[in-house]
Design a protein around this nucleic acid. Sequence first.
DNA 1: ATGTATACGTACCGATCGGTAACATTGTCA
DNA 2: TGACAATGTTACCGATCGGTACGTATACAT
Lengths: 205, 205
Amino acid sequence: MPADKNIELSINDDHASAPPKAAKKILDVAYDLFYRRGIRAIGVDEIVKRAGVTKPSLYRSFPSKDELAASYLRQYDLEYWERFDEAVKAHPGDPRAQIKAFLTRIGKRTQVADYRGCGMTNAAVEYPDHSHPARVVSEANKQELRRRLRAMAGAMGAQDADTLGDGLLLLIEGAYISGQLFGLGGPAQSVATNADLLIEASLKK
Amino acid sequence: MPADKNIELSINDDHASAPPKAAKKILDVAYDLFYRRGIRAIGVDEIVKRAGVTKPSLYRSFPSKDELAASYLRQYDLEYWERFDEAVKAHPGDPRAQIKAFLTRIGKRTQVADYRGCGMTNAAVEYPDHSHPARVVSEANKQELRRRLRAMAGAMGAQDADTLGDGLLLLIEGAYISGQLFGLGGPAQSVATNADLLIEASLKK
DNA sequence: ATGTATACGTACCGATCGGTAACATTGTCA
DNA sequence: TGACAATGTTACCGATCGGTACGTATACAT
């Protein structure tokens, strides 16, 4: 895992303003460790060690470990909707195909060893307290997911759009969780199939 | 901290063998704290304090905190299948009604403030390492759940029993998670409805 | 060259983590 | 009464937790 500093130099030698160089390394490392092993399981010492920086550097860029965790999730949120919008853009005006594309992708992602599910979901499980900075980000992400799914269910012409949207959300969350519970060949591989069955059964006849 | 011994005596005056008196109190308290706030979030000091015992007592009955967590989940497992079998017994020979009863119960349980989902699922999120004692119990529980759901889907006459069984599992896991993510009025309240739609769409025509 | 601002490193803080050694006390049953 | 088993008491261990005081190095402008 050494020999990273050279890379970082080469990719960062644009002569733009470079004030927060350490902050990016810290957030990148924290992202990886928090996601793969859990937030509570990772101490700040390990983060700064793997990032090749020191602890005061971390606390100059982030007020606390909890806020660093929240920053990790904000980054996760950005990339999450990027993936979501990719599936949407691939099938303009066809919400059913959009859902199918998104869920097919999730189903595939779950079928790799050591899949760790959704960082948002995991963080909410780790922090039941609704006032925790990480959980605030997580809950907002899930509210937005619910909103989008319900809207798409309506656009599909579901008999009960809210129920179908919520059903799709249940399947998605179930895929995230069972993807990390069962290994390869787990139930999550059928999420797209089951979602399409549910959609078919929920449309106006 | 005194005046507790009298109480414990009065509730424990059955003249059976009473070797592990402290162990039960410890496990009861650990069960409650681990479930509500998470295993990593609770230290052994808090457990012994709330149980009114001392740390050596804990380590005489349990080899480690990790094993105590596993014992908590073994207890959780027992009660889990009690609830499951209740729903099964209520509708003999009718797996579809059994599922509906079980999911209706889950849907209701999720609609209380501070619902914390499934202890098994939460533990697996907290401990990604497959060799962790708590996770071993959790994975076994989920494997058994999958086995039962697939068998019931077959008994219902599904076109593809494994896919329907897995779809039901996804909905259940989704209900556990979204039950603690969204508060009241969350998507989990529709789990029974969505499951029945999915079942209807999956039966042989 | 010198001032100034900013980023970084060394060393440390008190608190808590899981876990243990050694010994005193208690209740139970023979 | 004596013996055993379970629990309690106190004090402690090394490691790690999140977080910080404070001095140093580097960059840039004047």
